[in-house]
Amino acid sequence: MTYQGTLAYAAMIKGVLKDSKVVVEDGEELEERGYGRREERVLMLSLVEAAYLIDRGDLEVVSEDGATLSFEELVRAATVNDPSFWVRLLVYSDLRHRGLRARPLESAIPAFLVEKKVRESEKRYLVLCLEEGTRVGFKDVEAYLRRAMEARRELIFAIVDKEGNISYYRVEKVMGA
């Protein structure tokens, strides 16, 4: 897999930035590839998805007055409301780059619903980002585990270090307790 746009020679898909979302009119293909959320006739992309797609050259995002936003401009705008935007984007891009389907969750801690195809079946994960230097209490870990279990997913911590390197660790309760 490369970061080269897969749609480089097709007409660029266009989206409009509206209230922290990017609205795409003709989003069928993106939807099929696991991007965005369908809302009636349009596809709503989160800013993380939009930034990733701009970077891949698969999407052009324009503001409501029609001006095209560069990758940098979108990232800068998104960070105003969400200081952890870059970390979200890092982990999201890494998951996608590994060939996994990832959907951003709207949550205080950056998190993603991730699916991995394994032959006929599918592995389902809840991926939570933890940044080096920020600690997590056992109570929180238990809450995440419960949440993952209720969604029938395995809990994964994406640990992001000071340079932006990511390691993934599966978290599970063992010994039947």
């Binding site: 056992f138 238990e142 390691s167 599966r170 978290v171 309760k173 063992v174 010994m175 307790a177």
Partner: peptide, 17 residues
């Protein structure tokens, strides 16, 4: 770890990728 109710829990972390 032992929670405030005295229950013992065990967590395992496994490197995935």
């Amino acid at each position: 770890y032992v929670d405030p109710l005295g229950r013992v829990s065990y967590l395992q972390f496994r490197w995935m990728m």
